[in-house]
Design a binder for these strands. Structure first.
Ligand SMILES: [Mn+2]
Ligand SMILES: [Mn+2]
Ligand SMILES: [Zn+2]
Ligand SMILES: [Zn+2]
Lengths: 133, 133
DNA sequence: ATCATAAACAGTAATAGTTACCATTAAGTT
DNA sequence: AACTTAATGGTAACTATTACTGTTTATGAT
């Protein structure tokens, strides 16, 4: 991976914000530093940074949001304004006595485990064997 | 809400599957019963059914997936094939000794609380007051 | 049963977020 | 400095979804 001013700028913008911005928001922000940067460059670099594990992608309603905060934490998403806030709470506390001191009106929980399903693990193994031979 | 053959068909198709289909998949399926149904009708009804609380929407990568199983449960999403599977497990068990007997290779957890943020609650109140008078 | 009303529809055009393409630029190497 | 090729800027294309519009149809009233 070759250095680029564009990628560095995108990452530092993400690291400097507490919000969980969209690609468009990052684009507007980075344009102040690199006025002729392309929106495609923003998308490409966000995808690369995600791939490299330097940022997280959160897919809310219709669009992706990005988070450079790598410490394990969860999120609250407002169904009205789509804002995303960090939740720093143990999962035990979260599931036990949910709201209490939280300033949000919580009406639902989405818990999603990510990984590779059984079938895909088998395919992976087969695929690797086939080009080892 | 007025009855329609289209909505009934869409709902029963969703209720009959264990998978978590996309709008397109539902469209293909419902076309076998109502050959000239419009894709827009499928989208409109899925949104209405969600609004009425008869189905859940899951937003994965680029597109929405739908679930007519209303019993509280969580999901596993395969990062390779995008399949979504139900997870029936207490959140305590999930966060405590995660995998064990699960046939998935779990590499990440996305926990999202949904609701209304503080700011939006305040706006809601102001909004309601303004048209009460 | 006939009629009136508007909700819901089919078909299509438009939009939004994102990705693909390609000629040009520039990071890193010799 | 010359060379190689990853990365870019600009633009076109694509995909999921929504909006529009004229027509159909569920439903309640005559
Ligand atoms: Mn965060
Ligand atoms: Mn489910
Ligand atoms: Zn809000
Ligand atoms: Zn899979």
């Amino acid at each position: 991976m070759r250095y680029s001013r564009q990628r560095e700028s995108i990452l530092s913008i993400l690291q400097a914000t507490e919000s969980h911005p969209t690609a468009d928001w990052v684009y507007d922000k980075v344009r102040r530093e690199i006025s002729n940067i392309s929106l495609g460059t923003v998308y490409r670099n966000l995808a690369q940074l995600e791939e490299m594990g330097q940022i997280r992608r959160i897919n809310a309603d219709g669009q992706s949001r990005f988070d450079a905060n790598l410490s394990p934490h969860d999120h609250f998403r407002c169904l009205t304004c789509s804002s995303i806030f960090d939740i720093h709470m143990s999962h035990d506390d979260m599931t036990a006595g949910l709201p209490a001191d939280v300033p949000f009106k919580v009406t639902g929980i989405n818990l999603e485990l990510l990984g590779v399903c059984n079938e895909c693990q088998i395919k992976e193994i087969k695929g690797e064997n086939s080009h080892v031979a």
